[in-house]
Design a protein around this nucleic acid. Structure first.
Lengths: 150, 150
DNA sequence: TTCATTAATCTCGAATTCGAGATAATTATA
DNA sequence: TATAATTATCTCGAATTCGAGATTAATGAA
């Protein structure tokens, strides 16, 4: 009896995991389609958005915020720099540090595409009304925090 | 007024997207940790689990179920075959087709690790009670279906 | 001050995934 | 039947990410 209810609980959790994964797949696919329209990949967009909204960042800080290994950050920053959307600027106080700085071109790009991106997200999530979204945010936060702290 | 409420809605959707992405990151990290304990990566596990639970599959069918390009399936099947967990078996009726078939070794592995995997998932999702999970499943399905059909 | 530790960035090679195109077999059509 | 279109699998090269280790700089302790 204890046993069987544990099994049922496990099945429910597994089902939630499957449904969550599938939903994420569908949503990610749409969001990526949107981002690629702007000639960026999701990582490039995330880095550019960080600099756009949060200002200049030491390269290593970027890694902690977008969850990338330092070697991957080097790669992405190289690409964005080649596209002239960001620049590297050495830190005068600490010569180990290099800042990633968004250029005018990068800012102009984001001025143009970020509103479109928000609209796309809005469309993708239009299957729920506002109070359902509020509720979902609350539950997902609970879930995420719990998993993070395991 | 119409304008401002649209903006708020967009912000809410964006927030939901961010929270969903973060939750998924945390959960995925834990699930991957679990799977790597068994000497598999997530894709290998997914393929093996498919064959374990659904029986032999034409290689191309695997791709549609675990959402991988055909070239990626070839790669994963090669790896699982090298590890002796699956075998390729030509289809006698259609010589274009090759079946992926789980071996005794593969079945024994899954007999051992799948219950552990379910426990791990159970632990990861223990931040919610059963009725919250039910509710979350319902909303995520709605969201996923909507995004899929866009 | 000198030496050890810590920190930031980069290089390199491996792993994984994809898309385009090749090959071979089957099915549909004229 | 001969030809065209479709299907299944694979090969190959590019893109992305990672981890380990190298380099350089800053900081802390003796």
């Amino acid at each position: 009896m204890e046993q069987s209810s544990n099994i049922e609980e496990q099945d429910l959790s597994l089902k939630l995991f499957v449904v969550l994964s599938r939903a994420m797949e569908s949503i990610t696919k749409r969001v990526e389609e949107d981002i690629r329209r702007y000639g960026l990949n999701p990582t490039e967009f995330a880095v550019l958005e960080l600099l756009y909204h949060k200002g200049d960042q030491p390269i290593q800080k970027i890694g902690t915020k977008v969850l990338l290994a330092s070697s991957s950050i080097t790669y992405v920053v190289d690409k964005l720099e080649k596209k002239s959307f960001i620049e590297r600027k050495p830190c005068p106080r600490d010569r180990r540090v290099t800042y990633a700085v968004i250029t005018n071109e990068g800012t102009e790009l984001m001025n143009e595409i970020f509103p479109k991106h928000k609209e796309a997200i809005q469309d993708i999530f239009a299957g729920l009304n506002n109070s359902e979204k509020d509720e979902l945010i609350k539950q997902l936060k609970k879930l995420g925090l719990y998993a993070e702290e395991l």
